Amino acid sequence: MTTALVTLHDTRVLRCAPDGPALDGERAALDLIGDAMGHDAGLVVIPAERCGEEFFRLRSGVAGEVVQKFANYRIRLAVVGDISGHLAESSALRDFVRESNQGRQLWFVADDGELDTRLRPTG
């Protein structure tokens, strides 16, 4: 699979390929943001396996840097895939994921079906 632009429920989504560079800091975030802006995408979807180990270690600050960059450019981010191993190791990460999923800026979803459900208009 390659990176692709798709539209899901009126949202332009940049869906990243699983084999790209790791989302491991500010530089990687800016690269993805640039790609999203070039495609006029409002949401970047990245496979969980592309998030560097430090991303899931909240103490490192990587997740905070990444999320802040996306928020500054008003582009949403969704991490798709199984992160249960990381969640089992950190109650802080479990709290972060739960809080993120209550908002609209950053989502952690298990699969494309869950992402589709979140993007589907209500009412």
Rank of each mutant, 00 (worst) to 15 (best):
T122P: 10
L58G: 11
I46W: 03
R15H: 11
S90R: 11
H86S: 08
A4I: 02
I83T: 10
G103M: 02
E89Q: 14
I83A: 02
D31L: 02
V6R: 12
G61Y: 03
L106K: 10
A88C: 01
E53W: 05
C16L: 00
D19L: 01
H9W: 10
R50I: 01
F96S: 11
S60K: 09
R118L: 01
I83S: 06
L43Q: 15
V79Q: 02
P18V: 01
R27H: 10
F70D: 14
G52F: 00
L14M: 05
N101L: 00
V97D: 12
I83D: 07
R27K: 09
D112N: 11
E26S: 08
R59S: 08
E89C: 04
R15M: 02
E49C: 03
F55T: 12
L77M: 07
F70E: 13
M1L: 00
F96T: 14
T3Q: 04
G34Q: 07
R50W: 04
R94T: 11
A17W: 06
R94D: 08
T122F: 00
L93M: 04
L58S: 08
G42W: 07
G113T: 10
T2A: 00
V67S: 06
Q68N: 15
R118I: 02
L5Q: 14
R118Q: 07
T2R: 05
G20H: 07
D82V: 03
T2H: 03
E114H: 09
R120T: 15
A63Y: 04
L23G: 06
I75H: 14
V67D: 10
G25F: 00
L43N: 15
C51Q: 06
L106R: 10
S84I: 03
E89M: 04
R12P: 14
M1Q: 11
G42E: 13
F70H: 13
A29M: 04
V67E: 09
F96Y: 15
L58F: 02
A4L: 00
D24C: 01
I46D: 05
I46T: 09
N101C: 01
C51I: 05
E89G: 11
L115V: 08
G25E: 04
D95I: 02
A48S: 13
G42H: 13
G61R: 06
G38A: 00
Y73W: 12
F56L: 03
E49W: 02
F70V: 07
G123E: 08
S84W: 03
V45M: 05
I75N: 14
R76W: 06
L23S: 05
F108D: 07
L30Q: 14
C16D: 12
A41L: 02
G64C: 02
T122H: 07
L8M: 11
A88P: 11
S91Y: 11
E65M: 05
T3C: 00
E99Y: 05
R74K: 15
L5R: 15
A63T: 10
I83H: 06
A4Q: 14
V80W: 03
D35Y: 05
V44K: 12
R57D: 13
P18Y: 01
A36C: 07
A22Y: 08
T7Q: 10
R12L: 00
D40C: 00
D112I: 05
R27I: 01
